[in-house]
Amino acid sequence: MSINAHPELPEFDYVRPATLMEASRFLAEHAGEARPLLGGTDIFVRMRDGFYHDKYLVDVKHLDSTDELSYDPQRGLKLGAGVNMNRVMASPMVQAHYALLAEACRSVASYQLRTRATIVGNICNASPAGDTIGACLVLGGVLNVHGVGGYRQEPLATFFRGPGKTVLQPGDIVTSIEFPPAPAGAAGVYIKLGRNTWSDLSIVGVTVYGYADAGRASGYRFQAALASVAPTPLLVPALEEHLASHPINAEAFRQAARLAQAACSPIDDVRGSARYRKAMVRTLTEKALQMTWKKLGN
C-alpha cells in the first residue's frame, strides 16, 4: 500500500455479460484493460492501491454453472468459480471427503471476507501466499477454463508461472475447479504460520496430504505444498519420493522436512526473513507430517 492509495475505487465500468462466450470475447477484446471479477477481494485492494488500472471488471459469478457445488463419489468434487469459501467450508461433502480444503479456507482472512472470497479467485490471483492453493494442488485440482475457443482443462500443477502470473490468456475464464475422488482414509493438514493466531497472511504455509498406497514401497503416499516461500505455490516432489521409498518413521519425516526446506527459496520481506522462513518450513513440515500420520490412524 502506498501513501497515495486512492481513498475510494478509481473509475471503471462494471460489466455483466449474459453468457460465458460473451464474457470471454469481451475480455479478449479488451485485453490488458479488463479482468474477470469474482469476490473482488484481491481486485479492489489492488485497484485502490493503484496496482490495477482496469477499465472494465467483468462479473463472472453468475454465468453458467459458476455457482455450482457438487459431489459425486465417482467423479469427485466440483466447485464453481463463484462458490465462496464459507460455502465450501459449510458443505457436508467437503467436510466428509475434502476436509483439508475446508481447513485451508478457514485460515483465510475473516468470516465476512470469506462470504465473498473464492477459491478460484485465490488461485487466479496466483499469490505465493494463497492459502487454499496448497490444498488444491495436493488434492489434484483441475481447472475448467472457458476461453474464446471454448472449454479446456488446466491441471493446477502446471498453472502458475510466477507471482501473479498464470497460464491464462486474455479471454480465459476459470469456471470451476474439480477434484478427483479422495482416496479412502486420506488425511491432510494445513499449518499456517501468520503473525496473528488467525486472519493474517502467511509467513509460511505448509500443506501435507497423505494416504495409504500399496503401490509405493513405504505403503504410503505423502505430498506437501508450501506457501510464501517461493515465487509460486510450491509442490515438493522430493518429499513425496523420499516418503514413498523409505519406511515411515520419525527419521523419515525429519529427512523429508529437510528436503522441503531445501526445495524452497524464500525472500526477506515485511512478514518475515528468509532465514526464519527456511527454519519454519522444516519444523512445520515435520510437524504437519506427524499430524497427518496421526490422522491416518497411526
Binding site: M1, R195, N196, W198, S199, D200, L201, V270
Partner: peptide, 27 residues
C-alpha cells in the same frame, strides 16, 4: 507481540492493516 512501524531510510514498509498487525479477538 505484534506492532512496529517498519521504517527503512524513513520510508514506511507496512502502512496498512495487512502488514501492521494489531491484536485480534483470537490473540
Amino acid at each position: 507481540l505484534f506492532e512496529s512501524l517498519q521504517l527503512k531510510e524513513g520510508v514506511l514498509q507496512n502502512p496498512s492493516f495487512v502488514d501492521y498487525r494489531i491484536a485480534t479477538s483470537t490473540d
